[in-house]
Amino acid sequence: MSGLLRLEHLQVRLPIDGEPRTVVHDVSLDVSPGEAVAIVGESGSGKSTTLRAVARLLPPGSEVRGEVLFSGESVTAMGGRALRQLRTGGIGMVFQDARANMNPVRRVGDFLVEALVTNLGQSREEASRRVASLLQEVGIADPERRLRQYPHELSGGLLQRVMIAAVVAMEPRLILADEPTSALDVTTQAEVLALLDGLRRSRGMALLLVTHDLELAAAVCDRTAVMYAGSLVEEQRSALVHEAPLHPYTAGLIESSPHSAHGARRLPVIPGRPLSGLEVGVGCPFADRCAHVRAACRVATPPLHAVGAGSVACLRAEELLASGLEGVANGC
């Protein structure tokens, strides 16, 4: 099986207060060419760290164990040149805050031209000719004027489009997107997502999208992976996540979302707060919040195993699935 991106038991330790501490415990995930996969999780779940590990954008002093393979090559073992090649041609990255990732004293046009010149080796003239059509492609009206403007003159939505234009221009095989729309208004979010989705499909690029929003993940990604406390707990086709969640945590997230409440005065809730990867002890990290917990759950961390068309890290998954995974989130 030749995936484009393959994570095998990825474990990441970040230097926190000078000591390396495990933030991501165990993530195994495949992304095929042209496929869109979402990593969904709450704060502290390690979803962004996982994404950064793929692009080797972790802070100095971090330790990565397990394997990150990009078209068969180990990203963790890459040296300077291979890494540069990976970042210019292999993967492109879209961040949450486009503004923070652009030089505020340089014009938007210069930013794009520079991206093309340095990453694609195009001449300056060639690049300048191309940027206007690039902006048009990402749905920016009046591109000539926009190119002459500075980042602070553009709205967040427009800047995110510019970022997407810069990434897409490099024709990467995989786009990594870290909450690309969570800072945007809903209407803008819909447009930016549609844009990203359209460009990706038309060019056959794969997408690894990190988000906290299960609904959004389902809308733009073929498959959804759910992370909790630094581990991947569920992974299956997005279309099925809402109908038949495999892990009690996913089921709880869906039930407690106001989207799915229909006029009930109270929402079902998952008790407690989401744990971060740092706080995980022995056993299932979700055990303390889970309504279906058994003594066995606290003994060892349940391994990710195949269930139906997906996989899940829950000891009681089969049993619960058979009985219908309901009442995970209780009414109190």
């Binding site: 926190i16 407690g272 707060r273 971060s276 706080e279």
Partner: peptide, 10 residues
């Protein structure tokens, strides 16, 4: 429901 213990939030 109460959110559990009180370690420094990581």
């Amino acid at each position: 429901v109460i959110e559990t213990p009180l370690p420094p939030h990581p």
